[in-house]
Amino acid sequence: MKHRIGFNALNKTSSHRKAMKRNMVTSLFRYERIETTKSKALEVRRMAEKMITRAKTDSVANRRQIARDIADEAIAAKLFTEIAPMFAERKGGYTRILKTGNRLGDAAEMVILELVEKTAKPDKKASKKAEKAAAKAEDKVASKKAATSTEA
């Protein structure tokens, strides 16, 4: 029976399991989506959701708790400044698991673990189009002013 089994040991020692989960959570927050096996994704999701919930309230204590598991300071800062504010209105369910099929080598069930909402990345093409449109608008205004000044 499977009573009172709190987590999946993933057939690893506790130190290896802890290091793997920390690395995978860091990668999830860095890239906002990772591909892994289903059992690993379920364990990483538990850790990531708790971290996001904790990061919603920015305090020294919460930053220290997160820093215990996320060694990269830039990723920890991203969690507090970009990721957690996206989920301010959401009570839970910050991640989703999408099944992608079985791995060829050992037929392990593979999934994509991703954040439900994505951070807005600046689109270079869209920003260039906006700049060109602004420049055209300025040229039109300047030409109208020149035309009105020559008429008067």
Rank of each mutant, 00 (worst) to 15 (best):
H3F: 07
R4V: 04
I5Y: 04
F7C: 02
F7A: 07
N8L: 01
A9H: 05
T13A: 12
T13I: 05
H16T: 05
R17W: 06
K18F: 15
A19W: 10
A19V: 11
A19M: 14
M20Y: 02
K21T: 12
V25Y: 03
T26S: 15
T26F: 08
S27K: 15
S27W: 10
F29V: 14
F29A: 12
R30V: 07
Y31N: 10
Y31E: 11
E32I: 14
E32P: 13
T37H: 01
K40G: 06
A41F: 12
L42W: 00
V44S: 04
R45S: 05
M47A: 09
M51E: 01
T53Y: 10
R54T: 07
R54W: 00
A55G: 06
V60W: 15
V60M: 15
V60I: 15
N62F: 12
R64Y: 02
Q65S: 05
A71K: 11
D72Q: 13
D72E: 15
E73Y: 09
A76H: 03
F80A: 09
T81Y: 07
A84L: 05
M86R: 13
F87N: 01
F87Q: 00
A88I: 15
A88D: 12
A88S: 15
E89F: 02
G92F: 07
G92S: 04
G93P: 04
G93C: 04
Y94A: 03
R96P: 01
R96W: 03
I97W: 07
I97C: 10
L98I: 08
L98N: 04
T100R: 14
G101Y: 02
N102F: 12
N102L: 14
R103F: 01
G105K: 12
D106P: 02
A107H: 13
A108D: 02
V111S: 06
L113G: 01
L113R: 03
L115W: 08
V116E: 06
E117W: 06
K118V: 09
T119G: 01
P122D: 13
D123C: 02
K124A: 13
K125F: 07
S127L: 14
S127P: 03
K128S: 10
K129T: 13
A130I: 07
A130V: 05
E131L: 10
K132I: 15
A133M: 08
K136D: 15
K136P: 14
D139I: 09
D139F: 03
K144M: 08
K145T: 03
T148A: 14
S149E: 14
S149W: 00
E151S: 13
